[in-house]
């Protein structure tokens, strides 16, 4: 799982809201890319972002390598099944064509770039900062009568639940291993069977914790009200403006390319 990496880089100093806005611009740019020049621009942007975030190429490489099977499957599916026209090689339903190669490589590169940018966001932003940023960005939904305070509370509690439930799931998994469950060996069916006894206890543990928390909140007088918005300090630094302008420029350039 992507973890926050403490540091002192420009990205670490930037506001969570700014990083999230930049991430959405870059996300749009990645999805719009379909030319070699566009991919080169993304490559330059990703390289500069990795250097500025101080994450390290090895760390980034590990993140990408974890998904090598997924990338291979996506590439091969596109390569063999995309188009039978002008095929380099054909056999039964399999056709290797230039269009399939181009499509497969394009999809894999887009996913790699998205992975790189989301890793940079997560590695330089704490979960609490990220939730606060989401709360600020969700504020306009209040116009439609949606309780952004409740929404932010749910997201904040969810983020805080993740490490607790992750630990709980790990403990249950170890308990099942002690009882003879085989998670990492055997046939696919056996491994699936061994996962099943983990799922129900994990759900019960999660709902029990949620029940306790809800009880504690109600006991302390928590009610759904409109005035549960925390005060937001809109102090914008020059680097925040620069980052938004740059990411917006990357997105517009992608549209023009």
């Amino acid at each position: 799982m992507g973890q926050y990496m403490p540091g002192n880089s420009v990205f670490h100093k930037m506001r969570g809201t700014t990083k999230l806005i930049c991430f959405f611009w870059i996300l749009t740019a990645v999805l719009l890319t379909d030319s070699a020049a566009g991919f080169f621009l993304l490559f330059l942007t990703a390289g500069a972002s990795i250097a500025l975030a101080g994450i390290g190429l090895r760390n980034m490489g590990k993140t990408i390598a974890r998904l090598k099977v997924f990338f291979s499957v996506i590439f091969l599916m596109n390569l063999f099944f995309f188009s039978p026209e002008q095929a380099w090689w054909s056999c039964w339903i399999f056709h290797i064509s230039p269009a399939g190669f181009e499509q497969g490589a394009g999809v894999v590169m887009r996913v790699v770039f998205l992975l790189v940018f989301s890793r940079i966001l997560i590695a330089t932003t704490t979960p609490v900062e990220l939730t606060g940023a989401l709360e600020i960005l969700l504020l306009p939904l209040g116009v439609f009568g949606i309780s952004t305070g409740e929404l932010a509370m749910i997201l904040s509690v969810a983020v805080q639940f993740i490490p607790i439930l992750s630990k709980e799931a790990d403990q249950i998994r170890k308990a099942q291993i002690a009882r003879g469950a085989k998670f990492e060996s055997g046939h696919l069916r056996d491994r699936a069977k061994s996962v099943l006894p983990v799922v129900i206890p994990v759900f019960l543990a999660a709902f029990r914790r949620a029940d306790e928390l809800a009880l504690a909140m109600e006991a302390r007088g928590y009610r759904k009200t409109k005035a549960q918005r925390k005060q937001c300090k809109f102090r914008v630094h020059v680097r925040d403006v620069q980052a938004v302008v740059l990411s917006c420029a990357v997105c517009i350039t992608q549209i023009l390319l």
Binding site: V157, F161, L165, A210
Partner: peptide
């Protein structure tokens, strides 16, 4: 309140 917290737990389970 309980619905909200159970939803938060479910969102966390979507990741865990």
């Amino acid at each position: 309140v309980k619905c909200a917290v159970l939803t938060a737990a479910s969102i966390a389970l979507c990741i865990v």
